[in-house]
Design a protein around this nucleic acid. Sequence first.
DNA 1: AATTAAATTGAATTAAATTCATATCATGAT
DNA 2: ATCATGATATGAATTTAATTCAATTTAATT
Lengths: 303, 303
Amino acid sequence: MIEIRHLKSFKAISESGKLALAAERVHLTQSALSHQIRAVEEYYDITLFQRTAHGLRFTPAGERLLKLADIVLEATAHAERDLERLKLDQSGELRIVLECHTCFDWLTPVMDLFRRAWPEVELDLVAGFHSDPWNLIKEGKADFVIGGLPSASKHLQHTPLFKFEILAVLPPDHPLHNKPYLVPEDFNHQTLITYPVPEERIDLVRELLAPAHIKFERRTAELTVAIMQLVASRRGLAALPSWGLQNYIEHEYVIGKPITKKGLWSELHAAGKAEVMAKPYAVDLVRIIREACSEKLDGIKLI
Amino acid sequence: MIEIRHLKSFKAISESGKLALAAERVHLTQSALSHQIRAVEEYYDITLFQRTAHGLRFTPAGERLLKLADIVLEATAHAERDLERLKLDQSGELRIVLECHTCFDWLTPVMDLFRRAWPEVELDLVAGFHSDPWNLIKEGKADFVIGGLPSASKHLQHTPLFKFEILAVLPPDHPLHNKPYLVPEDFNHQTLITYPVPEERIDLVRELLAPAHIKFERRTAELTVAIMQLVASRRGLAALPSWGLQNYIEHEYVIGKPITKKGLWSELHAAGKAEVMAKPYAVDLVRIIREACSEKLDGIKLI
DNA sequence: AATTAAATTGAATTAAATTCATATCATGAT
DNA sequence: ATCATGATATGAATTTAATTCAATTTAATT
């Protein structure tokens, strides 16, 4: 079969007219080229060159393959340039910050999937708790925030991930365990157990308790399992995304109740600088998160 | 370097999604394909496929090469079809007839040149003398006539070759040897030595002697060298194309004189059926005749 | 936990391309 | 005519590359 290497040889022959010169240009010996073109002639059983005393002249068939060479070599060079560009897109760094502590639950398997698809992208989790995770991007310490809708003043590009319901978490024998849903007043003078974040970042407080001027105590814990222990031992109530509770509810360690009749819903978004969010691997990370979460987490809605 | 064979493999992979299936389609083992695509990935240092449990998925870079494959394979297939067509044009048969006996002088080297350029074309000379050579084409016994302008009634396509001068041939000591040129009356009651063809095909007779009602004897000989011998031994005069005489004149065996003040000129044409004359090798034969003759024959003019 | 259906790997093999040394061929000069 | 020159062709030896073979690995499914 004809190969690109032959086409390159043809081009070189046409440009130099002589086998020996052409051979140099394609880093072969004159003999190699002679063998090579002869092999093509034999393959197609057609004369491609007229051998003269001054070098080679293309026959019409040779000219035809030369035309093919022009097309193919041009297309190949173009593809190779594109490949170089794609190589840049294929590698990079993505330092992820989570606004939402519970998200660790699903992020680990998602990161595994991502790493398999994008082995050249270095994926890191920025450790620790930050009062304003989006600011880490401005400071150059992170690239990709998973959390609520960032305020417009951050000038970050964001993509919605999904909606999820926040359930109140009560010990199974709590006095309110028969109510179909809780209302803000049910939290009056209760202890609220939360992750250690500012009050305004807790949806329940911001959306319901603060507007209704409900008074409550706060106690914090860093890990979901610690919060569960505190709730189960009746030290207070919590409000967590439904998916984070499932395991505990199934084992009747705690119970979950909707908050307000229509439930308390929150949204998760991915945010980052526009140029980062445009990277194909960032776009793909968003896709992977949405796909994996909608499959594995109960009770969420893609947005 | 990437080669067409790789592009074919990519195409097969994209169409079957699985290495093992694709391997069959390109007549390789699954392992060979695995090695092959890996080599391309390493050459460009970029991941082309995402390996999943169900087969291979193209990465954007892989997709790009797939697009290249479409272009290249399409162009290659097209070129190969054209090559098949050209192969038909490249081979054929050309049975040549000469109206003009002297033309043998230059035809042999021309045929050598032609055979080198068109090895697939079978070149034959139709032997014998024919009163109407163009008719041989109609009868399917010849393809290509070299001679004067064929009459329009033959419905043949013709291409002009060149003009040449017909010189009178005299023995060196002939009484007329001092005249700068001969006139028709000089042939009165002389013996004219010619090839064995009808009178109306002899330019001198048709153009000059018959119109002037000159009386002359005729004697024929088949070979140019025989005519020369007869002239040299004073058995008569001849009239031949200048190029045919050169050797004899140089050796002072005979002398050549223009006929009439402006000379007697004749033309040579190639004629054949339109479809034969259109064949690339027929076109090229015309070119070779014109080039070779204008270089080697003195005193002719291309037309 | 075992099975299956894929791809990968590395060594061995086979095939193909390339080189080396030399031959051939056509042309132009002596 | 013969010789030198500048070109391509040829064939055997070599080198390089592609392919196979025989395990391995991997991940999903039963």
